[in-house]
Each structure stands twice: as structure tokens, then as C-alpha cells.
């Protein structure tokens, strides 16, 4: 397992990051990677309703969002996050062509992913999402 920021990108230490992923083992790996990078994990949750409740209640700096939640697309969660100005990193097994037009250019990480690369990408996204 790697140290925080080992592969470049801004540190995500102390950032509050929501994980929305329905596969337990993938969710657990994500949580572990973010924990080790010093982030505060919100969730994980595996279905749309629970995710929307967390988006509503929690203060968030970023979200990792699986596109397919138990056969249900998670774009409604993405919209809720957008409305709150929370940057979203899509996790998907889909190719870009199968995603809706407006999300094709959105930041995405294809499965299976490497933890270091994920942490680095998450760091970039947090930095961009909070210009200072």
C-alpha cells in the first residue's frame, strides 16, 4: 500500500469524500485506499436513495460515484452533487459511449483501477473543485 501523495497529485488529507459503490469488496478497497491517504470517508453506500440522503446531510469535498448501482443508474446522485458544487469522479465499467452525452467528458476512472492512480486523480479533482 502506498503513502499519501506517493504518485503525485494534491494531497487529500482531511478531505471528506463520499463513496457510492454497490459492490462490497470494491467499496471496501476504496475506503481503505482513501483512509490510507488520510481522507475522511463518508459512506460507503450502495444504492441511490442512501446516497442522496448522504449528499443532502453531509458536508462533502468530493464523491466517488459508481455509475451502475444494483442495475440503477446513479446520474440522479451526480446531479444532486453538481447542484451542491461537489466534484464527482465516476467509477465505471462502462465505456464513455454508453454514458449520457453530458457526462461523457466528466472525470472518470475505469474499473479495475489502481489505488494510487485513483488517489492522485481524486487529489487533482479536489484541488480544481476548490480554487484558492
Amino acid at each position: 500500500m502506498s503513502a499519501p501523495g506517493a504518485s503525485g497529485g494534491a494531497p487529500i488529507t482531511g478531505q471528506r469524500i463520499l463513496i457510492v459503490e454497490d459492490e462490497y469488496f470494491i467499496a471496501a478497497d476504496l475506503r481503505r485506499a482513501l483512509d490510507q491517504a488520510g481522507a475522511t470517508v463518508v459512506g460507503p453506500v450502495g444504492e441511490v436513495g442512501a446516497a442522496l440522503r448522504l449528499v443532502e446531510m453531509e458536508a462533502l469535498d468530493m464523491a466517488l460515484l459508481d455509475v451502475n448501482l444494483a442495475g440503477e443508474a446513479s446520474y440522479s446522485v451526480a446531479e444532486a452533487l453538481e447542484r451542491r458544487g461537489v466534484p464527482v469522479l465516476f467509477l465505471t465499467g462502462y465505456d464513455a459511449w454508453s454514458m449520457p452525452e453530458r457526462y461523457r467528458a466528466a472525470p472518470r476512472m475505469a474499473k479495475p483501477f489502481v489505488a494510487d492512480a485513483l488517489v492522485a486523480l481524486a487529489g487533482d479533482l479536489v484541488k480544481r473543485g476548490h480554487p484558492s
Binding site: E23, F25, I26, A28, D29, V67, N68, T92, G93, Y94, D95, S98, A110, K111, P112, F113
Partner: peptide, 25 residues
């Protein structure tokens, strides 16, 4: 067919991710 193909992609990539996770554990 398009949505099935997309699902298949999703499943294959998901299961590879799961397999790797199981391997790690």
C-alpha cells in the same frame, strides 16, 4: 443489445475488480 453490451462490460470489469480485491484479502 446496446444496453446488454454495456452491462456485459460493466459486469466483466466489476468482477475483475472484485477478483483482485478477493486476491488482495
Amino acid at each position: 443489445q446496446e444496453s446488454l453490451l454495456a452491462e456485459l462490460q460493466h459486469r466483466v470489469r466489476n468482477i475483475l475488480t472484485v477478483v483482485r480485491s478477493v486476491l488482495n484479502r
